[in-house]
Simulated scan of single mutants.
Amino acid sequence: MENTTPDALPERIRMRTAAFSVHIFTALGAGIALLAMLEAVREHWANMFGWLGVALIIDGIDGPLARRLDVVRRAPNWSGEVLDLVVDFVTYVFVPAYAITASGMLLPLAAPLLGIGIVVSSALYFADRRMKADDNHFRGFPALWNAAAFYLFLLHLSPVISTLIVALLIALTFAPFHVLHPLRVVRLRWLTLWLLAAWAVLGMYTLANDFEVGAPITFGLCAIAAYIIGSDTVIRRMKALKS
């Protein structure tokens, strides 16, 4: 309970200001999304992903900051959860959806329809109260379209294959399988964090070289993605076989 004596007033104001600043920091992600969109419109794709990477950093920092400063209690008039979802939607979904549909990597007739499919399915996913399992795994493909777009640019696949992959990911949004949350899943967290750090280094190298990287870098990035997507399924099946 906060101290209500007059001498404590400046401290209360300072703490509440600090708490509200976390909301501002989270909302800054929406401004970063605008910068990413401007780069996407210019077809500066590596720069776009660079700004989306900045948004990822903000998204990774604001939660621990909010808990440390007790934002829920000290700035209760603003919902950090709603704010986070709004910013996540534009950075994880909307800007990447534009990149996927406008970059020419999909079949021309399918591109706008799949773009609509991305944003509609993701909006439904974000509103789904079952989007996370009890162990903090995501249910289905977790609308990580920024990552999906990154890999489509990295792999330089044919329009037919890219179109099929995007359609499959839209369908998998509501599929009954679990995807690892890199920061919140406790199991093998040490390994996940090391792989996440390796992915960040490889990703920055890839963007610095405008996606023109060799097979070892591509393989490393794909292997880490396979771990994030498939590790829970593999572990569950191994446990089932042992039992």
Rank of each mutant, 00 (worst) to 15 (best):
M238K: 14
G203C: 03
L114K: 07
A75L: 02
W51F: 14
S231H: 13
E212I: 00
L83F: 07
L202S: 08
R129V: 01
A18T: 05
L221M: 07
P216L: 06
M238S: 14
L35W: 09
N146Y: 07
A225W: 04
I32V: 15
P64F: 11
T91K: 06
R67L: 02
L241H: 15
L154Q: 10
V87K: 11
I224L: 07
K239C: 03
A200I: 00
G31A: 13
L69W: 09
L155C: 13
G31N: 13
A167H: 06
I32R: 12
V201T: 08
D232P: 00
L69N: 11
T17H: 11
L28A: 15
E11D: 14
A133K: 06
F219S: 09
I100S: 06
V213N: 03
M204H: 06
H181S: 08
N209K: 05
P108A: 14
D135H: 09
K242P: 00
V120M: 12
W190T: 03
G50F: 10
L124N: 14
L52E: 10
L107H: 10
L152K: 07
F177C: 01
L196Y: 12
A36N: 08
P182G: 06
L196F: 12
T233P: 01
T163Q: 08
A66L: 02
A175L: 01
L107K: 10
P142G: 15
F25G: 12
A46V: 00
V186T: 09
D70S: 14
W45V: 02
N209M: 01
V41W: 11
A208R: 05
R184D: 03
L183V: 01
L157G: 13
L154M: 08
W51N: 10
L124Y: 14
R139Q: 10
